Amino acid sequence: MAAHRQHTRGTRLLTGALVAAALGAGTFGAVSATASTPDAPQRARTAAPASAVAERDTHRTRHLTADAAARAAQAALKAAREDGQRVTVAVVDRNGNTIAVLRGDGVGPQSYQSAERKAYTAASWNAPTSELVKRLESTPNLKDIPGTLFLGGGVPVAADGTPVAGIGVAGAPSGALDEKYARAGAAVLTTD
């Protein structure tokens, strides 16, 4: 009986090892086969094309290019330097994604996030943040919206009346100065 138990235990160990090896080989083979299947591009081509979505179920948006964002940020930073001010300039797209940030020499660390939040606020509301500050008097809970900052210094950028970006400036001694520099950045984007 003891010999039978040892044999059974040994058989179980051997069987378990064989099963594990077979499963491992099968998994490896399946992964290898999937990774190098020659007809994979054919399957990708037979998937539903993006154009299958009805036009009525989509909308098109316009976005500021990275080059335009960089030009605007440079212009805002230059205007601040000419006034002897140290600022950070942020340009965000319509969705609040940062496109460009320029942090001037010697500017405080808090200005980076403040500039981004001002830009986001201006783009979200399609209004200068100095105007939005006035709305807080009648609706103080606006300031509780995540990611926003209701201080002067943010201006929207529009194309054909539709907001496409926001420019935020932070670091000058007042929101009015920050907004002046943000407007200088937006001015380089206007057509002649």
Rank of each mutant, 00 (worst) to 15 (best):
L189P: 07
Q74D: 15
V133L: 12
Q6V: 13
D67P: 09
T11L: 13
R71N: 15
V133S: 05
Q110R: 04
D144W: 01
A66S: 12
S124A: 15
G104N: 03
T121S: 10
A54P: 01
K143M: 14
D67W: 09
V31P: 08
Q74A: 15
G154D: 07
V188G: 08
K180P: 01
G175F: 08
A73Y: 01
P49I: 04
P156H: 00
A115G: 08
R71M: 14
V87C: 04
P146W: 02
D83P: 10
E55S: 07
H7W: 12
A54K: 09
S32W: 15
G147P: 02
T11D: 09
T46Q: 15
A182Y: 00
D105S: 12
L136F: 05
D83K: 15
A100Q: 12
T37G: 11
S130R: 05
G153L: 05
G166N: 01
R81Y: 07
T58E: 08
N95S: 12
R43Q: 14
R81N: 15
T65S: 15
A17T: 14
A44D: 06
Q85G: 10
L177W: 00
R56T: 15
T148A: 00
G24L: 13
N126S: 13
A47F: 10
A72Y: 02
R45Q: 09
E82F: 11
V188M: 00
A115D: 04
A159S: 14
A172G: 06
A184M: 07
I167N: 03
Q74H: 14
T46C: 02
E131K: 11
G106Q: 13
L64I: 13
L132P: 02
G104P: 09
G84A: 14
A123S: 11
W125L: 09
A70I: 10
F28N: 08
A2I: 15
A44Y: 06
G175V: 05
A123V: 07
A50G: 06
A158E: 09
G168V: 03
L189V: 11
V53N: 03
G108S: 10
H59M: 08
L77F: 06
K134F: 01
T190S: 12
G24V: 11
